[in-house]
Write a protein that binds this DNA or RNA. Structure first.
Lengths: 196, 196, 196, 196
DNA sequence: AATGAATGAGCATTCATTCAT
DNA sequence: TATGAATGAATGCTCATTCAT
């Protein structure tokens, strides 16, 4: 307030707690990009570098590899929840948003796979929680069509679609997702989130 | 009776060239187990250790990471082909064998995913060939039921099932595979290969 | 007086960023010694060990084998340049300094040889640049005597002397260098740099 | 145990001692080519492969790395000796032959350098012997001109020329050798061995 | 006597994690 | 609180050397 950090200062001033939130956001954003480009096994140092912060900051905010991945996915999950809570939400629109995230983020697929790549040794407790939140968001817009009768069926179907979503280009992955839902007899609107 | 290969061998002495074939088989077997437990990105040294041989032996038999993976999957693919060529083979029996491999081996799932873990930089020409062989084996036993009309649909369905096949225990993975095929309206006999 | 760096350091604890400059200097010094003893093909791990730092530190400061070699030779070349720029510099004094480095460092000989040991596959752009700097430093103090008329002749003569500079002891190498210059009809003062 | 391998088997028949001499010659020839292409540090396995024999045969004939190198150089030295013993031999013709070998073989240069690459740990007693034979061959055709008065001077001059003989192409190396001898005031006929 | 597979140590390189400043 | 250097273990890969057949 008294002074803005001089934009031309060589050494970045200690901006106190204010910087903490900004750094956290930068890390999550950087992680999202790095994951998209190099997958979940990308070096953590690359994330810190992309975020423009030191390695230590990453560890301050996220104690382990799973934590930063969970934070990235948190955002995706929230958008699915928002789509489910939106006025006029239908099974098709919610699934459409979910599908969009599947095609956009290799990491999000990993989440549904409860992939071991995140934490080769331990478990990823956060992943389960996130997965449950997706389940809750989907529940309540039943029926989804096809032979899907229970929530378990629904989540299995999501996993199936995530297995289908491969391919080098975004378009190819979307096409495969569309066909996959069709094979399940389920309709998913090709909507996408307002902002990326 | 004559010999019982230790589950985690402890051999040391140089047994000469006679051991070559045995070592190769031990490596493929070890790789299969390691892959099933840790995925295709598992360290090669773990495979050599499990096989009870030195690192050099692995490299003698398999020049790179893709080669050993191809050797492992080769066996799985061959069993699918045999099931397809067997007398009285039906769509359900062939898919049953394929599904069994999906539930047994994380590596085999990676094959269908044309996973990049094998060769992050280069290409995996063998993997593609193997995938094609699976496709050829499945073709010709149509119709598979459900909405699957083309071979492309069929392979996509296989990918979908592979996405569903998660879970800590073998039984859980089998259960999910069964439900997955059911959601697709396809029948897959729960047979399994004669030998492991 | 204030500090006496152990000849084969035994440090362990992380002393933080303050150690960066010290470590870099230690690495260059260690590399100089290792190169003098074992040539440019010496294992990098030996350099790190002698410097008393981890392997990673070496890679942090020098991305590849050529970089550390260049850093070592940089210092030698600089001293030759200084000798050439010094007040009252003559052909004999400059060659004397150059010769001293030849007798001191197997690596410096390698530089003049444009040795392939540094980069068997790629190129060593720095090495060439350093070689040129030596050439520039020598130029301008002509004539050097003997039959040396061009700069090319001069550099060839340097290469010839470097070929002569063999032998187990420092004294023997100096003796051979002296005779070698004599055979070429060139005078090189047996001076040596002020500090080692 | 019970069965002999069929005599007409694919396996190469044991040709007894006869093959020994042939194998030795093949190994020396292969080593010469490999050394010329990849330098003295080339893997021994490459030599055995090029010679078309097993690794063990190489070790049977040559106990260590220095032995095979010495065998290669033996041939070069012999040709120098022959040139020295030939009718009408002069200082210029003998030096010409020696120079030709210098330009042809990086290994031969290494010999004169008593290079440590051959035997990083131990010494190379054979190398000394070969070096002495070269010295003997050169002696007796004095004077060689220039300021070379003793045999020591002469050998030093040879070392100097070997230091000058660098460059990617054979022609460049020959040119530099010619200039080098000229700078020493010594004449060396550009002859070359009758065959190779 | 020849073969070529096995051994295992050695070197290069990467990266997760810690920690002095 | 942020920085980013240091650590050191893990992994990939290459060979020299041995040795059963």
């Amino acid at each position: 307030m008294t002074e803005h950090p001089a934009p031309d200062a060589v050494r970045r001033a200690n901006e106190g707690p204010r910087a903490a939130a900004r750094n956290r956001a930068a890390l999550v954003g950087a992680a999202r990009e790095i994951y998209a480009q190099h997958g979940l096994a990308a070096p953590l140092s690359a994330i810190a570098r992309r975020a423009g912060v030191g390695q230590g900051v990453l560890y301050r905010h996220f104690p382990d590899r799973a934590a930063i991945a969970a934070a990235v996915l948190e955002e995706n999950v929230r958008q699915v929840e928002q789509a489910a809570a939106a006025e006029g939400a239908t099974a098709a629109t919610v699934l459409g948003v979910l599908t969009w995230h599947l095609t956009e983020s290799a990491a999000f697929i990993g989440l549904l796979h409860a992939d071991s790549a995140i934490s080769p040794r331990g478990t990823a407790p956060h992943a389960l929680a996130l997965s449950e939140r997706v389940e809750r968001a989907l529940r309540g817009h039943a029926p989804y069509g096809g032979r899907l009768h229970t929530t378990g069926d629904l989540m299995l179907a999501v996993a199936m679609v995530s297995g289908a979503v491969t391919g080098p280009t975004r378009e190819e992955r979307e096409r495969r997702a569309r066909v996959a839902w069709h094979l399940l007899g389920v309709e998913a609107d090709p909507v996408r989130p307002h902002e990326e």
